[in-house]
Computed example of a mutant assay.
Amino acid sequence: MGTAHHRRKRPAEIRRALLDNAMQIAVDQGLGAVTVQAVAAASGVTKGGLLHHFPSKQALIDAVFLDLLDRFSEDLEERMRDDPVAPGRMTRAYLSSVLDLGADGGPTAALSILMLADAPLRQRWADWTEALVSRHRATDDSVDLTLVRLAADGIWLSDLGAVPVPQREKLLARLQSMASGTHEGG
């Protein structure tokens, strides 16, 4: 009996490569360029190999979105753990996370692209955001803090299109002061 060639299986590594390559293609070329063939080729697997992990392009896109959302959530949690001041903690973490990652062309940009292009993903984002705000209602439920989060979203979206934000540093300083409760009118 001959010895068959056995390829070492690395399902977790292959799945990670598929997610990362799909995300990068979405950032670099747009969501329309995320095809089964393109992601499989970029990941060094066959289309069948991709379909083994994700039964359809939509399943892949959904998985990329959930992976990015998990990464974003982990970043927020880490930032909140590092902030000793409870009032506004979640909003400050959200602001710094969005603004640190928004213009890098990486995970946060991919999250934006996926949300903007897919109505069910926008709904998942809205549900995730509402759950986040609900969990932190005791420390982050004010008009000023809501305004800070919405402004952060606006800056994030303007970064996505590489639109320069006038007075970005002043805006950031103002939003940080609002989230710290040190905002003075004007």
Results as ranks from 00 to 15, higher is better:
L68E: 01
G48K: 02
E169P: 00
A179E: 07
R135F: 03
F65E: 08
M1H: 11
G185Q: 14
H5R: 10
V45R: 03
L150E: 14
R10M: 05
L114W: 04
I14V: 13
R122W: 01
A4I: 15
I155S: 06
P107I: 04
H52W: 02
G88W: 10
V27Y: 01
G181P: 02
T146L: 15
M115D: 01
T35S: 12
G161R: 04
Q37F: 03
D67Y: 02
A117N: 09
L160V: 10
A109R: 08
D62W: 05
H183D: 11
S112W: 04
D83I: 12
R122K: 09
P11H: 01
D153L: 12
R8N: 02
K57M: 05
A119G: 10
L116V: 03
R71Y: 09
Q29Y: 03
R92E: 00
W125V: 11
D127G: 08
L101R: 01
A162F: 12
T3L: 11
T3N: 08
W128M: 07
P107N: 03
K57S: 11
Q176N: 04
G185R: 15
S180E: 12
A17K: 00
D82S: 15
P87S: 06
L95I: 14
T146Y: 15
V163N: 12
P84W: 13
V133K: 11
V98T: 06
E78R: 14
V45G: 04
A26G: 00
P84R: 14
L160H: 11
L60I: 03
A151L: 08
Y94I: 08
R79P: 12
Q37G: 05
W156I: 02
Q24K: 04
L160P: 12
D28N: 09
P166K: 01
G102I: 13
A12E: 14
D159M: 15
R7A: 01
D67G: 01
T108H: 12
L160D: 13
S158Q: 12
I14E: 00
E13K: 10
L160M: 07
L147P: 11
M23N: 00
F65P: 02
A103W: 13
A110Q: 04
A162G: 06
I25L: 05
T46L: 01
G49L: 04
A179G: 04
L50D: 00
M1T: 11
G2L: 12
D104F: 03
Y94L: 06
S180G: 09
L157M: 13
G185Y: 14
R79W: 05
G105N: 00
L68G: 03
T146S: 13
Q24W: 02
I25N: 06
Q176T: 03
G185N: 15
V133H: 13
D75C: 10
V85K: 07
K47A: 09
L121V: 07
G185F: 13
L114G: 03
E169V: 00
L95P: 02
